[in-house]
């Protein structure tokens, strides 16, 4: 075997970086904890929340909170709740995963070890983001599919409204995946998993404040939740296409930024 020369089939190293990052994510505690939560807990919580909302024994204060789910098509309501849960859950799950994936390279000192490799450093930074995006998207889609199945098992019959809610929930989940990507830049900038989680918490708090103030329509981190109906049907209808486009555009901007950050890392 000749190991001294270049592998002529080696093209830029992205394939190697992708396989390596995928293996690391598969083996990670973060993925092992989050994946079942997204895939399992969201469908179960959706079915449970609707069952609770329609229970005659629900006390008054809780009944008020659950009122939006107390009436209407059963399957459509299950998907409505699933979309709303995913619009928050995917952000938190993705934020933690990104904080771990990027931040650990600095806290464990391995960011320096990935320097001088045939797979350029930027391919590793980009592979991390794309793998987390694919993983979150797949988890969200599986979660919605399981919600549909569970809904059918408890008597829900997916009609036009349910399918519409499924599409909306999928779109909301995809937008949240896009919103996770900027945290890769934050993690690279702060070089700290905990620092990234701190920024994640701050963004969630800021989103809540802006939504309460009625300014959520233009704030990307509020858009998926509003689209999923957390602000009610009127707030969802009020969303403009440019708000959706701006939210989605954060993903490519963040990935290009993180590529540049990883290409130019210094003092590691």
């Amino acid at each position: 075997m000749n190991l001294s020369g270049a592998d002529t089939k080696f093209r830029g190293g992205f394939g190697a970086a992708w396989g390596w990052e995928l293996l690391k994510l598969r083996r990670s505690l973060v993925a092992r904890l989050i994946t079942p939560l997204l895939i399992g807990l969201v469908p179960l919580a959706s079915i449970g929340a609707v069952a609770l909302a329609r229970s005659p024994e629900l006390p008054g204060t809780a009944a008020v909170k659950f009122a939006p789910y107390a009436t209407g098509d059963l399957a459509a309501t299950h998907l409505l709740v699933a979309g709303q849960l995913l619009s928050v859950g995917v952000l938190l799950a993705g934020g933690f995963a990104v904080a771990w994936s990027y931040g650990r390279e600095f806290s464990e000192g391995t960011a320096g070890a990935v320097t001088g490799l045939a797979a350029p450093r930027w391919t590793i930074g980009v592979a991390k983001a794309l793998i987390i995006a694919v993983w979150l998207t797949a988890s969200a889609i599986i979660s919605l599919a399981l919600t549909l199945l569970l809904s059918a098992a408890v008597g829900g019959q997916p009609g036009e409204e349910a399918w519409q809610n499924t599409v909306t929930a999928t779109l909301a989940a995809l937008l949240v995946v896009a919103l996770v990507m900027p945290f890769a830049c934050v993690a690279t900038l702060t070089r700290s998993p905990l620092g990234t989680i701190g920024v994640l918490i701050a963004v969630v708090m800021l989103t809540q404040i802006l939504v309460v103030l009625g300014a959520g329509n233009w704030f990307p981190y509020a858009v998926p939740s509003l689209l999923a109906g957390m602000g009610g049907p009127d707030a969802a209808d009020a969303l403009q296409p440019w708000a959706l486009a701006t939210t989605a555009a954060l993903a490519p901007v963040a990935i290009l930024t993180v590529a540049r950050q990883w290409r130019t890392l210094n003092d590691i």
Partner: peptide, 10 residues
């Protein structure tokens, strides 16, 4: 194996 791949080996 991962290190070898990142170093450019097939």
């Amino acid at each position: 194996v991962a290190a070898a791949r990142l170093h450019g080996l097939s």
